[in-house]
């Protein structure tokens, strides 16, 4: 479908207003997937990554916009590879009115990164964030999948799900967009490692049913679009995870 090979040294437009600004080290097989949503007056940065990724991620951000235009940083959960660089990113953005968007249970942990900006705690704001343009982002708390303090974000306008570690994958040959069935295999390995049981996955997938999801953008692994979305959901619905694989006890 995509004729030209993607240059991961550049920011990559997923949609007209959604960019991948991640990091990919082919030799070390390391990658992270921060994203930008560029709205009329506001810019959201999802999960800015780790300290070693800072210069690459922010260089790509700068290629797209002026960092001072970023108004919100969404933190899906607290892991160092997801937001370990948040204090430096905050410093570079340099806005007094920058908001950190997260679940209130995460605030206590994120403070340890030395952040100064105020928190927009989604659960205290009806689970939603409405931008000035009227664009609505909706948040689901996802305890047990895998951080107790985690959230996923659904963008009603683009019908995109920013899914944190869920729908992610571990792959030897990463590509930004899932294009072959091998994506499901790497997804299986990843979920069986970090998700405690199929039961919690199923409950979560059921909660997603009310959303019309066109694409899923995970923190690790590949972006799922088109037919990959329902297939991935079906795949996870039937995937035994964590304690299911050890006969119901700890290994």
């Amino acid at each position: 479908m995509r004729v030209k090979a993607l240059d991961y040294e550049n920011p990559i437009a997923v949609l007209r207003d959604i960019y991948w600004v991640g990091f990919y080290d082919q030799e070390a097989d390391l990658h992270c997937n921060p994203y930008l949503i560029i709205d009329d007056e506001e810019v959201l940065l999802f999960d800015p990554g780790s300290i070693p990724h800072f210069s690459v991620v922010m260089r790509k951000v700068i290629d797209v916009i002026n960092p001072e235009e970023i108004t919100h940083v969404v933190l899906s959960h607290q892991d160092p590879d997801v937001c370990g660089n948040i204090a430096v990113v905050e410093d570079l953005i340099g806005r007094d009115d920058l908001k950190l968007v997260n679940h209130s249970s995460l605030t206590r942990l994120v403070q340890h990164y030395g952040v100064k900006s105020p928190f927009y705690e989604v659960d205290k704001n009806g689970g939603k964030l409405e931008l000035k343009s009227g664009r609505v982002l909706e948040f689901l708390h996802t305890p047990f999948l895998h951080s107790p303090f985690g959230i996923v974000t659904y963008d009603h306008e683009s019908k995109s799900l920013f899914s944190s570690d869920i729908f992610g994958g571990l792959s030897d040959h990463w590509s930004l967009f899932a294009s072959e069935d091998a994506a499901f295999e790497s997804m299986s390995r990843w979920h069986q490692l970090i998700i405690p049981s199929n039961r919690v996955l199923k409950d979560f997938l059921q909660k997603l049913e009310r959303f019309d999801i066109q694409r899923i953008l995970p923190q690790h692994g590949s972006i799922l679009e088109g037919s990959f979305v329902p297939r991935a959901i079906e795949h996870l619905r039937n995937l035994p995870c964590g304690i299911d694989l050890t006969g119901g006890t700890l290994p």
Partner: peptide
């Protein structure tokens, strides 16, 4: 250009961390 931008950002990051 990319490499220069990243070096500058890296210095910025180091400067911030040193300040901390």
């Amino acid at each position: 250009n990319r490499s220069l931008a990243e070096k500058a950002l890296n210095m910025r990051c180091q400067a911030y961390l040193s300040q901390v």
